[in-house]
Amino acid sequence: MIKTTKIFLLLFLLLSNALAEDIRAIELFKEVRCLVCQGQTIHESNAELAEDIKKLIREKISQGETDRQIKEYLVEKYGDWILMTPPFNNLTYILWSFPFLILIIGAFAIYRQKRSQA
């Protein structure tokens, strides 16, 4: 009885681990651009290179690499272009921070205008 429970538990752990890896893989697929398609992720694409990269990501996950390591590997080989979401770095700081700047300028301008009227 205890033995079967143990086996079940082990099986469950293995399965849930596989499931977790699968979910992680799909989340990563959605973050990686299909290099030979127009604006699709590898998740959506069936192109050969996309399939190869999917296989590679699954292998790297089962080897215990983190999402970050996998992304860094892909960026090293293909450049920032391969990531669907641009990382925050010295190339993209304007892209990420400009919206907030605009927001603050607006808040300041409206506040000043109201105060000068009052």
Binding site: D80, T85, P86, L91
Partner: peptide, 18 residues
């Protein structure tokens, strides 16, 4: 001379709070 991809996640994370 550097290529970038700006995908849906950029828009959703920046626009959602607004």
């Amino acid at each position: 001379n550097k290529s970038l991809t700006v995908g849906p996640k950029y828009y959703s994370t920046t626009i959602a709070p607004i």
